[in-house]
Simulated assay, not measured.
Amino acid sequence: MYNFDGIMDRMSMDAIKATPQHSLQQDCIPLWIADMDFPAAKEIQDALMQRMNIPNYGYTLCSESYYEAVISWMQRRHAWEVKRDWILTTPGVIPAMAFAVQSVVKPGEKVMIQPPVYPQFARMIQLNGAELVTNPLKLINGRYEIDFEDFALKAQDPALKLFFLCNPHNPVGRVWSRDELQRLADICLENDVIIFSDDIHHDFVYGTAQYIPIASLSAGVSEITITATAPSKTFSLASFKMGNIIIQNEELRKAYNVAINRVGCTSLDVGAIKATIAGYTHGEQWLQAVIHYLEQNNALIDSFIAARMPVVKTVALEGTYLKWLDFRALGMNNDVLESWSLAQAKVWLSEGYTFGVEGSGFKRLNMASSRSVVKEALERIERAIHAL
């Protein structure tokens, strides 16, 4: 029913992913930014076309059907009962990070992250006047784990007010277990640390892994948690500005809402509203087909690398559609590795060092593309390694 093998000319769409930003990126296969190359579900296309055919695009409310779609999705897919008044909307998860800092942290206070992690975490924290604290993840036998001893020690600092969690984790692909989440939550509860959980990749989980919203652990944990979700990754809708921020604690929600209103981000555009309703109401079958296709792409990457370029190491993938690849055995520094990938391999990946110093020597590959494109990228990397 669904065909994800087609190749779309995304450069003709002015896609950020496909448009070179400097000369070395010319003629490279772009598998960097977290943006799928698949056509959106027909149900979403139809809903958007139907609405766009009505020639008035004025200010549009998020109707009750919008909130019902969000609530139903979280219940059906993730067994989390969300109340209508817990939900605030933002034009994306990146501004949601900034609003979290603005609503919780005073100048000079601290926010903790777990690198290597999505670069906007550190950026939004620092640009909004907070001090950055890191609790680096540990890579053990090809799988990342949390350093709980270090986390607990740093959480005791009375200046630490906020913790940015990423679940599923971008870029390392972990889906944190219930026990891991409970340990993090217990430490935050003991030390009066608010949790901001970026769960934007929550619909991409594989094998026996299970996505668990940290706020769903207990009423107490929910009271200290801001959960950021969006259908943008789930349904290939990255250009629409959309985000659903779920906060049970009324006082925290009011403070967060003040931050939203302070910059005037009080509404969503009509396309984001209609796409959200259509995706969460009718897009489940399409998503299941995408996940199946991604599982096959992941298997291809793992088997290809193991058989044909074992000098590169893969990290076990539990969630997201992003592969975290270890190139450290090539012995290149970050600048050389980046230039080699673009100039010799002609493959454009996300550079590991941008996720923190812990990502030095790594690259992130977006596998949400046609299998033939992914295979060609791997073959180019293989040829470039053999030419060294």
Rank of each mutant, 00 (worst) to 15 (best):
R178C: 08
E180P: 00
Q182T: 15
Q182P: 05
L184T: 11
D186G: 00
I187N: 13
I187V: 15
C188W: 02
C188D: 09
L189G: 04
E190W: 11
E190C: 06
N191W: 13
V193T: 07
V193F: 08
V193S: 07
V193D: 04
I194M: 15
S197Y: 03
S197P: 03
D198T: 11
D199C: 03
I200Q: 06
D203M: 10
Y206A: 05
Y206I: 05
T208G: 05
T208Y: 08
A209I: 00
A209C: 06
A209M: 05
I212T: 09
P213K: 02
P213E: 03
A215E: 03
S216E: 07
L217Y: 12
S218V: 01
A219T: 13
A219I: 10
A219V: 05
V221C: 14
E223S: 15
E223F: 10
T225F: 12
T225D: 07
I226H: 14
I226E: 13
T227V: 08
A228P: 04
S232P: 07
S232K: 14
K233W: 08
F235V: 06
S236F: 03
L237Q: 06
A238L: 13
A238K: 12
S239N: 08
F240I: 13
G243P: 02
N244V: 05
I245T: 13
I246R: 00
Q248V: 01
Q248C: 09
L252S: 05
K254E: 11
N257L: 10
I260E: 02
I260Y: 01
N261R: 15
R262L: 02
R262I: 00
V263W: 07
G264I: 02
C265K: 04
C265N: 08
T266M: 08
S267G: 06
S267D: 02
L268R: 08
D269P: 00
D269M: 04
D269W: 00
V270D: 03
V270A: 02
G271M: 06
A272Q: 07
I273Q: 01
K274T: 03
A275N: 04
T276G: 03
I277L: 11
I277K: 06
I277V: 13
Y280S: 03
H282D: 06
G283K: 09
E284K: 10
Q285I: 14
Q285N: 10
W286P: 02
W286C: 07
L287S: 14
L287G: 08
L287E: 13
Q288T: 08
A289Y: 07
A289F: 08
A289G: 12
